[in-house]
């Protein structure tokens, strides 16, 4: 394990009913890295992301965050250090936008209400929703909801942010605002793992693209390398299909 890795995923395996979804995946992130996981659906990307914070408990393998292994008995503390952004936002629907961003600061990190409020307002400004603090989730568009959920994750001051297809549930015209926020975060030096089909984001913001298929990492490399001369036939085929549709 390299000492300077913020997140270190080692040989993670997961099977459902005998069907191996992850067949031993390893990768790592240094501080400020943005890694994008791509691959056809069913390739295990989302499962891998969920294994990192034990939303899905892996069958084998180790995950280290800042040198500490992620285990069942420290999972709550570990998760608090890993922001997770869901495909369908999952904002707390009974709470205002401000409370959505505050509640875990207070109930998990033990922040005072004042500190949490300040931080929440700052993060909402950061995602461009400073004026929506008093709104409720149902009053927001999908894109706005997703930006709130990013602010909610950021407010916990995480070591790493995990994005699980953050734009897949959005209408095409709303993906732009979310992608822009993610690009901005990447540029600001946030450490991020992103599962997405947004190739424009991958191309511009990723330090490395990881192409997965059938539970394996087929190939990984810089965007330039991957988009211009991928070694593997499968990677090229996949990128071509995505490019046509994207």
């Amino acid at each position: 394990m390299a000492d300077d890795l913020i997140l270190d995923v080692q040989d993670v395996k997961k099977a459902y009913d005998g069907l191996e979804v992850l067949k031993g995946i390893s990768f790592g992130l240094r501080k400020g890295d943005t890694k994008v996981l791509i691959g056809p659906s069913g390739s295990g990307k989302s499962t891998l992301l969920r294994c990192i914070n034990h939303l899905t408990v892996p069958d084998a393998g180790r995950i280290y965050l800042n040198g500490h292994e992620v285990l069942d008995d420290n999972i709550d503390a570990m998760r608090a250090r890993m922001g997770f952004v869901f495909q369908d936002f999952n904002l707390f629907s009974h709470l205002s936008v401000l409370d959505n961003v505050r509640i875990c600061q207070i109930k998990v990190n033990g922040a005072t209400k004042e500190a949490a409020t300040q931080r929440a307002k700052r993060e909402l400004e950061r995602v461009g929703l400073g004026d929506k603090a008093d709104a409720y989730p149902a009053e927001l568009s999908g894109g706005q909801q997703q930006r709130v959920s990013i602010a909610r994750a950021l407010a916990m001051d995480p070591d790493v942010l995990l994005f699980d297809e953050p734009t897949s549930a959005l209408d095409p015209e709303l993906t732009g605002e979310v992608v822009r926020v993610m690009q901005q975060l990447a540029a600001e030096g946030m450490t991020m793992v992103v599962v997405t089909h947004e190739m424009s984001f991958a191309r511009q913001a990723a330090d490395e693209i990881i192409f997965m298929e059938n539970g394996h990492i087929v190939e990984q490399g810089t965007p330039d390398a991957m988009f211009t001369d991928s070694v593997h036939e499968r990677t090229r085929a996949f990128l071509n299909v995505i490019a046509e549709h994207g």
């Binding site: 914070n53 998760r79 608090a80 869901f86 369908d88 904002l91 629907s93 875990c104 998990v108």
Partner: peptide, 17 residues
């Protein structure tokens, strides 16, 4: 919805919280 519990747990809340 199940996503509410999932999101709360993913933010580091214990089951009870």
């Amino acid at each position: 919805p199940a996503g509410q519990m999932m999101a709360a747990r993913a933010m580091g809340m214990s089951k009870v919280k």
